[in-house]
Simulated scan of single mutants.
Amino acid sequence: MTAPQTISIVAAMIRDETKRVLLVRKRGTTAFMQPGGKLDAGESDLVALRRELREELGCTLVDGSQRPLGRFSAVAANEPGWVVDAAVYAVAVQGPIEPQAEIAEAIWVDPARPGAIELAPLTRDHLLPLAALEQSDV
């Protein structure tokens, strides 16, 4: 068996005033995940994240709000045989959050109790546990 190929992405941890986390589901898929996506050639993480948030949700990243949370790897939710390597940032956004382009649905979840929804492995195994831990430290 060959080793899985890797997709490099950038992802956003966006929280509301009650510390819920924003998740999105792409059209034609079933798993919820953090907003974000692949970097275009020559893009930095934050340039790509700013572009992805505008394209996917119609909102704007608040300048200076980004806080790096780390790099995480997990099985890709929508690309069989692939692994995602994600640079993840906690960010604030401004403007209405409305699904655009390839996003079918956006929801807010309690990271400690997301409910009976399908979660992408990166979100399920790394990012919601991290958000729940940060929430308990407050």
Rank of each mutant, 00 (worst) to 15 (best):
2 T>C: 03
3 A>L: 08
3 A>M: 08
5 Q>Y: 06
7 I>S: 09
8 S>I: 14
8 S>L: 12
9 I>P: 07
9 I>T: 13
10 V>Q: 14
11 A>Q: 04
12 A>K: 01
14 I>W: 00
14 I>G: 00
16 D>K: 00
18 T>H: 14
21 V>E: 10
22 L>H: 05
22 L>E: 14
23 L>N: 00
23 L>K: 00
23 L>E: 09
26 K>N: 10
26 K>H: 08
28 G>Q: 12
28 G>A: 07
31 A>T: 13
33 M>Y: 03
34 Q>L: 14
37 G>E: 06
38 K>S: 13
38 K>V: 14
39 L>I: 12
41 A>H: 09
42 G>S: 08
42 G>A: 03
45 D>P: 04
45 D>I: 03
46 L>G: 13
48 A>W: 09
50 R>T: 15
52 E>P: 05
53 L>G: 03
55 E>R: 11
59 C>T: 14
60 T>D: 15
60 T>N: 10
61 L>C: 02
61 L>T: 01
61 L>R: 00
62 V>Y: 06
64 G>N: 14
66 Q>A: 12
67 R>Q: 15
69 L>M: 04
71 R>H: 10
75 V>I: 05
76 A>R: 02
76 A>N: 11
78 N>T: 13
80 P>Y: 07
82 W>P: 02
83 V>E: 09
83 V>P: 01
84 V>Y: 01
85 D>K: 01
86 A>W: 02
86 A>K: 01
87 A>L: 05
89 Y>G: 04
91 V>T: 08
91 V>P: 04
92 A>S: 07
95 G>R: 13
95 G>C: 13
95 G>M: 14
96 P>S: 09
96 P>C: 10
98 E>W: 11
98 E>S: 15
101 A>E: 12
101 A>G: 12
102 E>M: 07
102 E>Y: 05
104 A>H: 07
105 E>W: 04
105 E>M: 01
107 I>K: 07
109 V>F: 05
110 D>M: 12
110 D>F: 05
113 R>I: 08
116 A>G: 15
117 I>Q: 05
120 A>V: 06
121 P>E: 10
122 L>T: 01
122 L>Y: 06
123 T>N: 01
124 R>S: 12
124 R>F: 05
128 L>W: 10
128 L>R: 06
128 L>H: 00
129 P>T: 10
130 L>Q: 00
131 A>T: 02
131 A>E: 09
132 A>N: 15
132 A>F: 07
133 L>T: 15
135 Q>R: 09
136 S>E: 15
137 D>T: 15
